[in-house]
Design a protein around this nucleic acid. Structure first.
Lengths: 217, 217
DNA sequence: GCGCCAACTGTACGACGTACATCGGCCGCT
DNA sequence: AGCGGCCGATGTACGTCGTACAGTTGGCGC
């Protein structure tokens, strides 16, 4: 972990930071920690990045660039939009703690511009004029980010068994609520506490977004 | 700013923190700063809150409790759902920098439970079974939060004229892109950079969400 | 072999969260 | 009126963070 096998570079720092964020959460991504992981002085980071914010921007840009945009096709716009949104979700899901910062790079990173252009084209095909398409596209991206990063319980990374206990506890407190005041909440409790990270959660809500675009045309 | 006119309490601290976050951004909300604003030692905060995270949780809970839930009515479920989502957005909009933390209190704060119950009831009325309703309700809340907090450019608070300059610059860089590769993006540039905080941005995308729920029934 | 410059080191500073021990003033009691 | 208890605030200290500024190296072109 603390060895120098190659020269430092923006890329190895970003990769290291991403791994660190995935393993121990975003708050573990520290200038000093990154330096230590690479067997280097903290100040060495400042040769490659102006400051920590620039480093985090690079992390976010890396995520945006990880989106594998599906090739344009003859399929109807809604099917294509669905595929694009899913591609974004697929790229973000492995890094939920970093995903929250992706939105601020979507109009900066090259890949983000391409992605935005693609979504705008599909929305135009759907019949939205440019101004509304812009608003919808912005919101769609933020929503997909929220879909991945929004887990309120997962602010820090936890071990699987610890997580299970926490879920059990949360479910218990919810089902212990007064049944006359919160009937639906109690019925939905298991889904409420465990839906994040589930495949059908993503599928259902990506559908919701696409159907929403259909609805507002 | 630095005077003691009353005994400290959780409420005055939370109010102070909220004002601070609105004026100077979340990162200005500091134990030491809050103490200073109240003419008190930093350690005095720890009598009222276990740690900083508890303080931020209280901030988030305060936001959730600020939601003025519209009274149940005879209106169709989609109109009511639209009103509830709008009520959430209205409560969050004055505090965009804090809004991002609201999601993690929605199943903790009393008002959040009531709000969730209400949304779940409306989704049941729409015909969703409990499990899917849970997933949709969770996502809807996160989405509204993203709608308010998601502004990528507004991570720190800026003065109006500074903001305008920034928007102008962003628009310029976007419209300067190669027109053959990014036609839609260039056409939509003004909307992309300035849509956050606009009323019609909220209206349109809240409609999108409600229509999305209609679409997935 | 020499010099240069990109890449890295060393030291230091101020701000942060907060553990731990202490203290003062207001309360109801006698 | 005196007094003890305890709520709410204090004072000091520690470790960690980002990072300014100046100094140092190693390898490459000449």
């Amino acid at each position: 972990m603390a060895k120098r096998n190659q020269r430092l570079s923006r890329d190895v720092i970003v990769d290291c930071a991403m791994a660190l964020a995935d393993a121990e959460g975003l708050e573990a991504v520290t200038i000093r920690r990154l330096a230590q992981e690479n067997g280097v002085t903290p100040m060495a980071m400042y040769w490659h990045f102006n400051d920590k914010e620039a480093l985090l921007d690079a992390l976010a840009a890396h995520l945006v660039e990880a989106v594998k945009l599906p090739p344009p096709s003859e399929a109807p716009w809604d099917a294509q939009l669905r595929d694009v949104l899913e591609a974004i979700a697929v790229a973000l899901r492995p890094h939920p703690t970093v995903a929250g910062m992706a939105a601020r790079q979507v109009l900066v990173a090259d890949a983000g511009l391409e992605l935005t252009e693609r979504v705008l084209a599909l929305l135009a095909e759907a019949g939205l004029e440019p101004h509304r398409a812009a608003e919808v596209a912005t919101f769609l991206f933020c929503s997909v980010v929220a879909l991945v990063a929004g887990d309120p319980g997962q602010r820090e990374v936890v071990t699987p068994e610890d997580l299970e206990g926490r879920l059990r506890l949360k479910t218990a407190t919810l089902t212990a609520l007064p049944p006359t005041r919160f009937p639906h909440l109690i019925a939905a409790a298991p889904g409420l506490v465990s839906c994040f990270g589930q495949d059908d959660f993503f599928d259902l809500n990506l559908d919701l977004l696409v159907q929403g675009v259909r609805g507002i045309r």
